[in-house]
Amino acid sequence: MENKEHQYQETQAIALRVREHIVRMSTAGGCFIGASLSAVDLIVFLYTEFLNVTPFNLNDPNRDYLFLSKGHDVPALYGTLTELGFLQKERLSKHLSSDDHVYWHPNTNIPGIEFHSGSLGHLPSVAMGVAMDLKICGSDNKVVCIMGDGELNEGSCWESVLVANAYGLDNLIFVIDRNHFQANMRTEDLIPLEPLIQKFESFGAAVKRINGHSYTELHDAFNAYPFQKGKLNVVIADTVRGKGLPSIEERADRWFCNFSAPEIDQLLLELYGEHTTSLTSETLIVR
């Protein structure tokens, strides 16, 4: 497995830079850093290997769609869109500024963002509607909706699963970022979610559970799409909140963070480790 992961060195490099962007956005107002870091590998993989969507085909009716239902993870999406050429890097420095739309939740004024989100449980239904329209039109587009595990406490998520299966939407994939935290609590201490595989299967979905930080497992899962004809596809991706920064990983108090400039410098040193050259909060890392 480890040898196969080496095939994804460029993907890993992109993900590392996306994590840098997230760290840099966790100051001057802050961001939801923990959950954003857990979703990086999922989002980077989907855009670089699975989805047919680029900065040049956003108006192409044959392109694919990604909906970020857990909208507070948008720094991971901003960073990915920046690395892939959808969004200019300098706009990230305007995070939370009234001079731009780079904010705490997705905004469709930013190229590549399909729908406003932030109200948890909203976008599964939106993604389902898009997938249903594509089915009616006979199109082959893929539709992916990324959801948080805590978001599954919303009844609308399960309604979407029921309806998607009722209409045979096998062009739709729900990806669950299973980092085991909901805001500042562990999900199983608040409203237990397990056994998730059996719950989704009982609603009629075809389910795969993987390590959400393994590009090999991501490849194998999404390469099997559609998992079963006529059924909603569900990928439960086990992830680590704060992935990439051991000092904040799996910490309930590192949900939303607003770090000082010196703290940002220290986190970037931690992120890059021995590969880091001289850097400050005002200077991009030399790679």
Rank of each mutant, 00 (worst) to 15 (best):
E2F: 06
E2A: 09
E2R: 14
N3E: 15
N3I: 11
Y8M: 02
E10K: 15
R17Y: 04
V18S: 10
S26A: 15
A28L: 11
G29H: 00
G30S: 05
F32R: 05
L37C: 07
V44M: 03
V44W: 09
Y47P: 02
Y47M: 02
Y47C: 01
T48A: 03
P55Q: 02
N57G: 03
D60Y: 02
N62S: 05
D64N: 13
F67K: 05
K70M: 02
G71R: 06
P75E: 01
G79I: 03
G79V: 12
T82M: 04
E83N: 03
G85W: 11
L87K: 05
E90T: 00
R91T: 05
K94T: 00
K94C: 00
H95V: 02
D99H: 00
V102K: 00
Y103R: 12
H105R: 12
T108W: 00
I110G: 00
P111K: 08
I113N: 06
H116F: 09
S117R: 13
V126R: 02
V130Q: 11
V130K: 15
G138C: 06
S139G: 01
K142A: 11
V144K: 05
G148V: 09
G148C: 13
G150R: 12
E151T: 09
G155V: 04
G155R: 13
S156V: 13
W158G: 07
W158L: 04
S160E: 09
V163Y: 14
G168H: 08
G168I: 08
G168S: 14
D170Y: 09
L172F: 15
I173G: 01
I176V: 15
N179G: 03
A183T: 11
A183C: 09
R186K: 15
R186M: 10
T187G: 11
D189Y: 10
L190R: 14
L193M: 12
L193E: 09
P195G: 01
L196R: 11
I197N: 14
Q198I: 05
Q198C: 06
F200M: 10
F203G: 03
G204F: 14
I210A: 12
S214L: 07
L218N: 02
A221C: 12
F222G: 01
Y225K: 03
Y225C: 00
G230P: 13
G230H: 10
G230F: 12
K231R: 15
L232F: 04
D238M: 01
T239W: 07
T239Q: 12
T239C: 10
G244D: 02
L245W: 15
P246T: 04
E250C: 08
D253I: 07
D253W: 13
W255I: 03
F256K: 14
F256A: 07
C257Y: 03
N258F: 03
A261L: 15
E263K: 09
E263A: 10
L267P: 06
G273F: 10
E274L: 04
T276V: 12
L279Y: 05
T280S: 15
S281G: 14
L284W: 14
L284C: 09
V286S: 15
